Simulated scan of single mutants.
Amino acid sequence: MLTVDFARLPVGPGVRVLDLGCGGGRHAFEVLRRGADVVAFDMDQTELDSVKSMFLAMEEAGEVPEGAHGETVHGNALEMPFEDASFDKVIAAEILEHIPDDMAAMRELLRVLKPGGTAAITVPAFLPERICWALDEAYHTAPGGHVRIYTLAELQAKLKATGFEIGPHHHAHGLHAPYWWIKCAVGVNNDDHPLAKAYHELLVWDIMKRPAATRIAEAVLNPLIGKSVVLYVRKP
């Protein structure tokens, strides 16, 4: 399940990409499949171990184009172990909402990006996120959880103040917002609730089969209740 639109953030052979806060590696895997070099960066070593294993499995399965390379690096987004201007592209998907000093992370992102390089920044969209917070306090108070709700204007203003040129944006995962509202309504940790389980099965089916009906529904819902907003920015 990709949040970033790679038509807007093109990657390929000869491009070095940082997946900042890579989590399970969904974007890093897609970058590698497209032939670019990718560094999957995260604080969670367990996640990184899983990503590294998948990189190896992709190579063994012949899914990695010749010359492309994927690696994992453990560290903190506020003090990344990379030289200035190390990357052509950066992906920061669903990470800034977890960081108390988000502008420090933005400055680090700017530092490691090459002049003229572009980045895709994704955060939970305001309305779906606000509803989740209202329905269940546990959704955002768990350790390592979300510490703020961004408006698009706030995200744009902070990135502009950091030094980025602001580009286009779009919303993603319109079908996923109702799932999280259901989860929060029945208890965010109540994975066994019949309604939550049924909706989760629908989402898995959609991800695996990509039927036309749900693709059309998501395209309609994205601008209205898309769970994520994706902003593309450039380093001058």
Rank of each mutant, 00 (worst) to 15 (best):
residue 209 K to P: 09
residue 29 F to W: 06
residue 34 R to D: 05
residue 122 T to L: 02
residue 231 L to G: 08
residue 54 M to S: 13
residue 54 M to N: 14
residue 190 N to F: 01
residue 73 V to Y: 07
residue 79 E to N: 15
residue 234 R to N: 08
residue 174 G to A: 07
residue 215 R to Y: 01
residue 55 F to W: 12
residue 57 A to N: 09
residue 226 G to N: 10
residue 94 E to F: 00
residue 109 L to M: 15
residue 134 A to I: 02
residue 184 C to S: 10
residue 115 P to L: 04
residue 74 H to V: 10
residue 49 D to T: 12
residue 147 V to M: 07
residue 224 L to Q: 07
residue 204 V to Q: 08
residue 130 R to F: 09
residue 113 L to K: 00
residue 20 L to G: 07
residue 20 L to A: 14
residue 225 I to A: 14
residue 70 G to C: 03
residue 174 G to V: 04
residue 40 A to W: 12
residue 190 N to D: 13
residue 148 R to A: 06
residue 102 D to L: 02
residue 17 V to H: 10
residue 216 I to T: 15
residue 172 A to E: 15
residue 202 L to R: 04
residue 153 A to Y: 09
residue 110 L to S: 01
residue 216 I to S: 05
residue 128 P to T: 04
residue 116 G to C: 00
residue 48 L to W: 10
residue 74 H to G: 05
residue 138 A to M: 08
residue 140 H to T: 04
residue 15 V to E: 12
residue 1 M to F: 04
residue 51 V to Y: 11
residue 163 G to D: 08
residue 79 E to D: 15
residue 177 A to W: 00
residue 87 F to R: 03
residue 156 Q to L: 04
residue 101 D to Q: 13
residue 211 P to C: 15
residue 33 R to S: 02
residue 90 V to G: 01
residue 109 L to W: 02
residue 150 Y to E: 02
residue 217 A to Q: 06
residue 183 K to A: 14
residue 46 T to Y: 14
residue 46 T to F: 12
residue 138 A to F: 06
residue 11 V to D: 06
residue 84 D to L: 06
residue 137 E to N: 04
residue 137 E to L: 14
residue 177 A to I: 02
residue 29 F to M: 12
residue 203 L to V: 00
residue 134 A to S: 09
residue 227 K to Y: 14
residue 115 P to K: 03
residue 93 A to N: 14
residue 210 R to D: 12
residue 141 T to C: 05
residue 221 L to S: 10
residue 234 R to L: 13
residue 213 A to K: 06
residue 18 L to S: 05
residue 56 L to G: 11
residue 43 M to R: 13
residue 93 A to K: 03
residue 40 A to P: 05
residue 61 A to S: 06
residue 77 A to R: 00
residue 71 E to G: 05
residue 213 A to V: 13
residue 141 T to Y: 02
residue 109 L to T: 03
residue 47 E to I: 13
residue 51 V to I: 09
residue 162 T to I: 06
residue 12 G to K: 13
residue 133 W to Y: 11
residue 52 K to C: 11
residue 193 H to A: 06
residue 5 D to L: 05
residue 36 A to N: 12
